[in-house]
Every structure is written in C-alpha cells, then in structure tokens.
C-alpha cells in the first residue's frame, strides 16, 4: 500500500515536471499581483503619491475616422498593416539584389568597383535613415533627369516608391557587408582545392563555396529583414500611411495613447515573430542539405 502510494507520488511528480510550463503563467500572475499591490499600490501610490488615472476604452477603434466615408480606425489599421508588409517585402527584394551586386563589386578584382562599393556602403551605413528618407524624397529633384521625375510623379503612390528607394538603399549596404563577410569567411584553400580537382570557377562557386556561404549568411539576413520591417515605420514622415502612421492618426485624433500604442506594439510583435518563425523554418527544412 505504502509502496503504491510512493509510486503514484513519483508518477505525479514526473507528470508535473513534464507539464510544468503550464504553471509558468501562474507564476507570472503571482509576480504581476506582487508588482501591482506592493510596488504600485503601496510604494507608488502611498509613498510617492503617484497615481495612474487612465481609463481604458478600446471601443475607440470602432468609431469613425472620417465621417463622410464611414471609415473606422480599424480600417485604417488594416490599411496600415498591409502597407507595412507590402513595403517591407518589396524593399527586401530590391535590397537583396542590390546588396548581392554590391558584394560582388566588393569582392571583384576591379579596383574602381571595389572603391565605389566600399564608399557607398560606408556612407550609407554611417548616416541616419531619417535623413536619407528626407534626402531621397525632398532633395533629389534637381539631380535627377526631368523625364524620370515627371514620370514618377504621374504614378499614383509616389511616397511609397520613394519609401522603397530609401529603405532598399539603406538595407542593401548592410546586406552587402553580410554577404561579403559570408563569402570571405570560406577559406581560400577550398577554392584552390576545388580548382585543382578540375572544377571550373563557376562550378566551384556553385557547388563548394556558395552552399557554405549561404549557411553563414542566412541568420544575419534574417535579422536584417526584421530590421527592415521595423525601420519601415520611418516612412510615415513622408506621408506613407503605414502601421505607425495609422496609430499616430488614432492618438492624434482621440488622445487615446495607451490603446493606440498597445495595439500597434502587439501587431509589430506578431509580425516580427511570424517573420522570424517563417524564415527559421525555411532555414531548417529547405537549406538542410547544406549541412555536410
């Protein structure tokens, strides 16, 4: 009888141990209660005399932003999220191709190309994106040919196009450095050995060097694409209505800071998690052959 009870006890402890992550939220609840009552109620309110008077009102999202078209703030947020995703994807594609070209320039034996790529990368990396966005949008008019600018202005979303230009130029400098570092981290002897084996230069690149380089380059590229998604919030300054801009419309119009910013935070958080999850899965399954 005693033996059986002990076995049961052991089994229960194993079960508890296995599913202990279920209890973690409860621990957090305890911490939150502690913070709420001890830190907030006793320390802040009674000792320091700071009391928060803020009543939440999430119903504000369903009020109309523009009365004439009955567009609500929810519609505005949806529009914002779609624009953020669109601008990130387009900029990422452009930045990837630009970055690859720059990396090839950097690694090539032609001195002029190397110097050009190096100065481009260094200049772009060491100046703030905000200044760059403003420079491309407001400052490039006298420099570009007139035909091009008139064509560009006739398009329906010029701001979006300029946003893509600024974001992809900024990100391409970072991506180029990552790709260059990835390719350079493969020892030179590998190339020499594969050439000695009878591979041509392109074959050696394709079959030996690049597969290894990709494995090194992928993680930093994931973080760069995450950075790009985050930095895309800055294009609101030239009038693109993306997620950050819609949240600014909300708290500019209704002075509901907490509601606007909390929803925006959750959306950005889930966007980032989704991107990193998807890219990690891609990395895991589709590039697994690169693990020799």
């Amino acid at each position: 009888m005693i033996k059986k009870a002990r076995e049961l006890k052991v089994e229960a402890s194993i079960l508890i141990n296995r599913y202990r992550f279920i209890f973690y939220p409860l621990y957090f609840l305890a911490i939150a209660l502690f913070i709420y009552f001890v830190v907030y109620k006793i320390l802040l309110v009674n000792v320091l005399n700071i009391e928060f008077n803020y009543k939440l009102n999430y119903a504000i999202f369903f009020t109309n932003y523009i009365e004439a078209t009955r567009q609500s703030y929810v519609d505005l947020y949806v529009l914002g999220v779609i624009t953020t995703i669109k601008i990130s994807i387009i900029s990422l594609v452009v930045a990837m191709s630009l970055g690859t070209v720059l990396a090839i320039f950097r690694l090539s034996n032609v001195k002029v190309l190397d110097i050009f790529a190096k100065s481009y990368i260094e200049f772009i990396r060491n100046t703030p994106l905000l200044i760059q966005i403003f420079f491309w949008y407001f400052g490039t008019d006298p420099l570009l040919p007139k035909v091009f600018t008139t064509w560009l202005k006739a398009q329906s979303n010029v701001e979006f196009a300029y946003g893509v230009i600024a974001l992809s130029i900024y990100t391409s400098a970072f991506i180029a450095e990552e790709i260059r570092a990835g390719i350079q981290s493969i020892p030179k002897e590998q190339m020499e050995a594969s050439r000695a084996q009878g591979f041509s230069f392109l074959q050696a690149m394709r079959l030996v060097i690049l597969p290894q380089a990709i494995r090194i380059v992928i993680p930093p590229l994931i973080s760069q694409s995450l950075n790009l998604t985050k930095y895309s919030s800055l294009v609101m300054s030239i009038g693109v209505v993306e997620l950050m801009a819609s949240s600014r419309f909300l708290f500019g119009g209704t002075a509901r800071i907490f509601e606007a910013l909390s929803v925006t935070t959750i959306i950005y958080l889930s966007l980032s998690l989704a991107i990193s999850f998807a890219l990690n899965q891609y990395n895991k399954y589709f590039l697994s052959y690169t693990r020799y």
């Binding site: 995450l226 985050k230 930095y231 919030s233 800055l234 950050m244 708290f251 800071i257 907490f258 910013l261 925006t264 935070t265 950005y268 958080l269 966007l271 980032s272 998690l273």
Partner: peptide, 14 residues
Amino acid sequence: SVPLILVIFWFCFF
C-alpha cells in the same frame, strides 16, 4: 521586435 519610434512614443507620450 518593435521599432524604436514606437518605444520613443511609449516613453514620451504615455
């Protein structure tokens, strides 16, 4: 996972 501008808004406006 959030942009800096959002953190700045949180701290400066809330």
